[in-house]
Amino acid sequence: MKIDKKTVENIAHLARLEFTEEEKLELTDSLSKILDWVDKLSEINTEGVEPLIHMSEETNVLREDIPQNTLSHSDALDNAPKKDSDYFRVPKFLG
């Protein structure tokens, strides 16, 4: 499967990543190779096989509805690059 530069640019935008022209070329090539490799799987007949959704066989790993405070307000804000006494601060944007 061949990936073109436009697809790379689109994926990069969705992931908020920026690449140089050179890097884009390199990615076009390596992503195509990865997809070719994954494409190998379609050689196998999977008719009637349920898609695998989860790697583990475990189900119903659930928690009871008991509230618990595990993180203080100051610890929560501690690692934020920008904050005030109450809030995380991010560059202004319009939603």
């Binding site: 929560a76 109450d86 995380f88 560059p91 202004k92 939603g95």
Partner: peptide, 13 residues
Amino acid sequence: LHLSGETDTLVDF
């Protein structure tokens, strides 16, 4: 929270 006069957007989680 987009407050007027603020250069940042404030986020409450």
